[in-house]
Amino acid sequence: MTRLLLIGPPGAGKGTQAVRLADAYGIPAISTGDIFRSNVKNGTELGKQAKAFIDAGDNVPDSLTNALIRDRLAQDDAKDGFLLDGYPRTIDQVRELDEFLASRETALDAVVEITADIDEVVARLGKRALEQGRSDDTEQVVRHRLDVYREQTAPLVDVYSERKVLVKVDGIGDIDEVTERITAGLASRGIGPRDAA
């Protein structure tokens, strides 16, 4: 039963690492970005509301995000553990998640902060925009998203550091190396992959 949260700036490699870690630890990866993009693609009401925020590089409002995450965490595959990617992003969302987990008499086991150089992030996301045709990865939007991250999400690092659940990992380098850094950091806190259990 492993409950993890990945945080870090856009383009730090959270999505890639989330998939790898979810597989290694036998838990579902829950990405707000993927959920929003799926809703946008399928033209749902939530998707229409979210699209304007996403295209501008702004975070989707807490009210929409909280409802979506509560619903997702209540599903059967997440009751024995999960990996959150992209939520919470704000202190208010931390409180919402705390309340939800407390109602289930549980808490996060670890919070992995993936760090990355800003110019490296801009370059990565520019490449991804070309490869995937994503409207939310122009340089102007990326730099705005990084500013929003610094203002709203970076304070979460302090919160989780005070709770002594933070594992800080350098996200620059080979994907396998970054995965190894994360699993080593988690192992140092007694959290091992499914196969090691």
Rank of each mutant, 00 (worst) to 15 (best):
M1F: 09
M1I: 03
R3L: 01
L4M: 00
L4F: 00
L4R: 01
L5P: 05
L5M: 13
L5R: 02
L6I: 05
I7S: 02
G8R: 06
G8Q: 08
P9L: 03
P9I: 01
P10H: 02
P10L: 04
G11Y: 10
A12F: 13
A12Y: 14
G13V: 11
K14L: 10
G15H: 11
G15V: 11
T16I: 08
Q17A: 03
A18M: 08
R20I: 14
R20D: 08
A22C: 06
D23N: 09
D23M: 04
A24H: 07
Y25W: 14
I27V: 15
I27Y: 10
P28F: 12
P28N: 06
A29P: 10
I30R: 09
F36H: 06
F36W: 09
F36P: 01
F36N: 00
R37L: 07
R37T: 06
R37D: 05
S38T: 09
N39L: 04
K41F: 09
K41S: 12
N42M: 06
N42Y: 00
G43V: 09
T44S: 13
T44F: 05
E45Y: 03
G47E: 13
K48W: 01
K51T: 07
A52L: 14
F53E: 12
F53L: 11
I54T: 10
A56C: 04
A56Q: 12
D58G: 08
D58P: 00
N59I: 10
N59K: 04
V60E: 01
V60Y: 05
P61E: 09
D62W: 04
D62F: 04
S63W: 01
L64Q: 08
T65E: 10
N66M: 13
A67M: 07
R70E: 15
R70C: 10
R70F: 15
A74R: 14
D76A: 15
D76I: 08
D77P: 03
D80R: 15
F82I: 01
L83T: 05
L84M: 08
D85F: 13
D85K: 11
D85L: 07
G86H: 14
Y87S: 03
Y87P: 00
P88N: 09
R89S: 13
R89N: 11
R89L: 12
I91Y: 10
Q93E: 15
R95V: 15
E96R: 00
E96N: 11
L97H: 11
D98W: 09
E99N: 11
E99Y: 12
E99C: 01
L101F: 06
L101K: 06
A102R: 07
A102Y: 04
S103D: 15
S103H: 14
R104V: 02
T106F: 07
T106N: 01
T106E: 03
A107L: 07
L108T: 05
L108S: 08
D109C: 07
D109G: 13
A110H: 11
V112E: 07
V112A: 07
V112C: 11
E113F: 11
E113A: 09
E113K: 06
I114M: 08
I114P: 02
T115R: 10
A116H: 00
A116S: 06
D117I: 03
I118R: 07
I118Q: 03
I118W: 02
I118P: 10
D119S: 04
E120T: 15
E120N: 03
V121S: 02
V121R: 03
A123R: 05
L125R: 12
L125E: 02
K127P: 00
K127I: 12
K127N: 09
R128I: 02
R128P: 01
